[in-house]
Design a protein around this nucleic acid. Structure first.
Lengths: 351, 351
DNA sequence: CTGAAAGCGCTAACAG
DNA sequence: CTGTTAGCGCTTTCAG
């Protein structure tokens, strides 16, 4: 019978401790510790006795307690502060980080911020209080200087998708500007000059960068976008759907749409289908999404690579945890235009 | 300057401890503890002094250490052993659990099993070693008796999507059998008798239940399925795509398809589109997916409700953590047939 | 090769 | 109201 003490509630048995194993095996706690941690220098018979006791008690070391005492202090867990666990971008990022962590026996804490700056701080606080060894952050707030102490304490921090503000740390970003510009060039090449911009909340840095790329690419072609065809702050499918419906019902509607975010793209498709104009109005969306290739027309997108971003972020984290040092660096992950049909609908200015 | 000791590596400063706060505030550690935990009975001036010291040092309690000592032993973290963090079902489940946990200040550890039984055990082990307060498990192995000690030790465990084997614990399952039967009835009502079954790996319980529902519903209509039209063990889009292509190219092809899983459904759609027969061959898929309503034809599905499953699972967990007791129970979450077009394509046996 | 003593950061259980 | 002592489960340090 294990530690007779701590009979917490009802009829719950206590979990066996290292001491219980030691007593059952007739050795000292330290010897059990050595066996558990695979340290050399324990005689064969004692090793066997310890292993037998471990099996008999179904003993599992308390990792939390050991990392409290261990000199490294590492908890072998890292934290991911994501936008929304349920959206495909966050999910792919999460999965890529998990895969990298798995090889090292590291576990992941993850949480959703939902574009809420307070929630970002709460999550970071909760994760650091639980001794996460490192932080991957997709920020929602506009200032992360509150993390300075964390960083100077030696916790690796990497920002993903959006740059850190007021905090010199590594970042892994999509090439938003150039990706958006590529979308515009593509549409212009297919004969469009009246291209609408439909974008996410302007306080999101990626949205600003994409809009910047859009504007500059147009101006490269000597086109001044009509302000009527620029709609910002679309953060739901529904908002986007309505904006597109309005846009296409107005006088002199655009012949092409550039939708700067996932949900915005889907909302636009919905509107186009309702109006029955999905084969007339060209569309290029930023960020790929599942089944984009199965729609009719299939949807041309500027694809990001969240898995690659996760891999890069994880690699930066683990290299820092391994003691490598370097000046904080921003890593751009290329986006890729995937022509599928909707972006190749030709406009009136061909040739 | 905080604890001058433990100058771990390079130039990393040490994180301030409760002792550091106590010294700076000129009080005992216990007083700091009281302030941090909001215990009543500390004089206003000392409270203020402590708070000032906390702010000055940017002190954050070490939750790991406190839960080691705390009588409850709770880590305020629960674990989710999921199929694949990146798939929409797992992601929705994860998110629902997170939302329920957030209200209580509980964090989530999550990991992907990828249908690998060993990985299931590894994850459970890793999570329990880190003192997760409870476990939500979507199992991949065919025996979970290894969790018996965990359960008897008082850790709440809930299975989701698939029942536990050899372990009496709560489960939250979709009504797979009836959902599949509903799909078949729907197709028969629309004039189909030659209905193909395309399903996932037979070692997955949900796949078996859906097949069972399929068979029984057919037999309710006096239909004996042709063995040629039953394809099991499809676990990727590609496998499904090829199976459907083969099926529709053979002699006497089915007039309707029942695809018993997400990826299988998408693979089938891909095949139908390639053959240009998506408007002739009826299709009902098990499990909803994003954009199903935007395809042409829009895809009729038997929708599961992963969010609801997550909510129920979380509620069971937290009620048990709060001390409620009951005999392990299975909760069925209803599925819902959503007619969208593909399932209403009529077959030859109408009227 | 093995164990005893000390202590990681914090709180329980007392005493004042 | 406040502090002291002990100890959570484990590992470090150091003595045998």
């Amino acid at each position: 019978m294990p530690t007779a003490a701590t009979e917490t509630a009802s009829n719950a048995k206590a979990r066996p401790t290292l001491r219980d194993v030691a007593m059952l095996a007739g050795v000292s706690p330290k010897t059990v510790s050595r066996v558990v941690n695979g340290e050399a220098g324990v005689s064969a018979p004692k090793t066997a006795a310890v292993q037998r006791a471990i099996a008999q008690l179904d003993y599992r070391p308390n990792f939390t307690a050991s990392s409290l005492r261990r000199s490294s202090g590492r908890s072998a867990a890292i934290a991911a502060v994501l936008e929304d666990l349920a959206n495909p971008f966050s999910a792919a990022l999460h999965r890529a980080i998990e895969d990298a962590a798995r090889d090292r026996g590291v576990l992941i804490f993850a949480g959703s911020v939902d574009e809420n700056p307070e929630r970002e701080r709460e999550l970071v606080r909760a994760f650091t209080m639980r001794q996460a060894d490192a932080l991957v952050v997709v920020p929602a707030s506009d200032d992360q200087s509150y993390l300075a102490n964390e960083v100077s304490t030696g916790t690796p921090v990497v920002f993903v998708d959006r740059p850190p503000v007021g905090l010199p740390v590594d970042a892994v970003l999509t090439d938003n500007h150039d990706g958006a510009a590529a979308a515009v060039h593509h549409l212009v090449r297919h004969g469009h000059r009246d291209i609408a911009y439909l974008g996410d909340l302007r306080n999101i840095p990626t949205a600003r960068q994409r809009f910047q790329g859009f504007k500059e690419a147009l101006s490269d072609h000597g086109i001044r976008p009509s302000t009527a065809a620029i709609v910002h702050d679309l953060h739901t499918e529904r908002a986007s759907e309505e904006a597109v419906r309005r846009l296409l019902s107005a006088g002199s509607p655009p012949t092409a749409l550039f939708t700067a975010q996932n949900l915005v793209t889907v909302g636009a498709i919905r509107a186009l289908q309702q109006l029955g104009r999905q084969h007339e109005v060209a569309l290029v969306g930023f960020d790929d999404f599942p089944l984009a290739d199965l729609l009719q027309p299939a949807v041309t997108v500027v694809a990001q690579d969240p898995s690659e971003m996760g891999r890069v972020a994880a690699s930066l984290i683990f290299r820092r945890l391994d003691g490598e040092q370097w000046r904080p660096t921003t890593h751009l992950v290329a986006s890729r235009l995937i022509p599928r049909g909707s972006g190749e609908i030709t406009g009136p200015h061909r040739g």
